[in-house]
């Protein structure tokens, strides 16, 4: 059997996640109690996940966060720190749908499919929109209103409303109209220029210079400049053939360009996180150690989740008692 390419793996995983968030409300309606929530906050087998931006809004307004939200926000941020914004390319359902919209666009709408889009433009717009939205939130609102701009949350919330409450929600309409817009434009407009949720992930990713990234070896490249498979494969319209990878702020590490280059000259390849950092005592590289670290971290998360699943009620009670006592004390001091 042929070994599946990275793109097949990625697509399968994306579809799995997208389907999972359809079936979570159905499972909950049938009283299966191991997985809850939507893309803003989510828990499976006691392991919490949360949107870092939602938790940031929570923390900024209250100067207070809970263990659940802290760990939940930390997990995506650690993922972004080591592997880049793989959340956007592997997990987010609104990463999957616009990719299909773009396919539709390239097949039916666009006149010249090879027309390259200029890269590296999106992130400044995103920063501007993010800071605008965040200042509006900071000045006028106590509710975390930036949550309402999360397309992934729209997606999962639509099914929460539909299967949980038998109501067809309007966020589905928003989502479909946005997708039609993407079909016409074909540039993954929302992901590149607006999505405020990804800004934090990108900022955290930029902290780590030795993260997972696509590297380009110029001497191996055999394609001529007119017909560049890698450039066409990139759904974000970036050019992977730059030596210093200046476009990396926007690159989602989806690996489409790497797969497309496999048949040509294998000039593009992934560089493992923490590559080149030697680990002195064991005389191996940290990137090799990283694989073991991933296994360790995942088993740790699983262990933590199971423990928390068992003692959940007790922990929450303790936290509540603590915060209540703190509030009572602060009222006494007033």
């Amino acid at each position: 059997m042929r070994k599946p390419t990275l793109k097949t793996c990625r697509r399968t995983f994306q579809i799995f996640i997208a389907l999972a968030f359809i079936f979570i409300p159905v499972l909950n309606r049938s009283r299966y109690s191991f997985v809850y929530g939507n893309f803003l906050s989510f828990q499976a087998f006691g392991v919490p996940f949360a949107d870092p931006l939602a938790v940031l809004q929570l923390t900024v307004k209250n100067w207070y966060f809970t263990l659940d939200t802290f760990i939940g926000a930390l997990l995506p941020l650690i993922l972004a720190f080591t592997l880049g914004t793989v959340f956007c390319s592997w997990i987010c359902p609104y990463g999957l749908l616009p990719e299909w919209a773009q396919k539709v666009n390239r097949k039916f709408v666009a006149r010249s499919p090879r027309e390259g889009m200029s890269g590296r433009k999106g992130f400044p717009y995103k920063i501007v929109i993010f800071s605008l939205g965040f200042s509006v939130f900071f000045l006028f609102s106590t509710t975390p209103i930036l949550n309402q701009l999360s397309t992934a949350a729209w997606y999962s919330r639509f099914f929460q409303y539909y299967f949980g409450q038998d109501v067809v929600s309007l966020c589905g309409l928003f989502l479909i109209s946005l997708l039609c817009f993407e079909c016409v434009l074909g540039k993954r407009f929302w992901c590149r220029y607006i999505c405020p949720q990804s800004v934090l992930l990108v900022l955290v990713k930029l902290l780590n210079r030795k993260r997972l990234k696509v590297v380009f070896a110029k001497q191996d490249c055999i394609c001529n400049s007119g017909y560049e498979r890698c450039k066409m494969a990139c759904t974000l319209g970036l050019n992977p053939k730059t030596e210093d990878n200046v476009l990396e702020t926007e690159c989602n590490n989806c690996g489409d360009c790497v797969v497309s280059c496999q048949k040509m000259g294998k000039a593009l390849s992934f560089e493992l996180p923490f590559a080149g950092i030697p680990f002195p005592h064991l005389k191996i590289q940290v990137s090799v150690l990283f694989k073991f670290l991933v296994v360790a971290v995942f088993s740790g998360i699983l262990f933590f989740g199971i423990v928390r699943w068992i003692f959940h009620r007790k922990l929450k009670r303790m936290a509540t008692r603590f915060s209540l006592r703190r509030e009572l004390f602060s009222r006494v001091n007033d």
């Binding site: 979570i24 409300p25 909950n28 009283r31 109690s33 809850y36 929530g37 939507n38 803003l40 906050s41 989510f42 828990q43 949360a50 949107d51 939602a54 938790v55 929570l58 307004k61 209250n62 939200t69 609102s141 106590t142 509710t143 975390p144 209103i145 949550n147 309402q148 949350a153 919330r157 929460q160 409303y161 949980g164 409450q165 109501v167 929600s169 309007l170």
Partner: peptide, 29 residues
């Protein structure tokens, strides 16, 4: 309102289906 993440876990865990996620255009609520 400043703490609620609008994740709907409470509505999903409610075995009597009495908790509903609020609908409407008011995006504060």
């Amino acid at each position: 309102l400043s703490r609620c993440l609008q994740c709907g876990q409470c509505a999903q865990v409610c075995i009597f289906d009495c908790i509903q996620m609020r609908r409407g255009f008011n995006f504060f609520l």
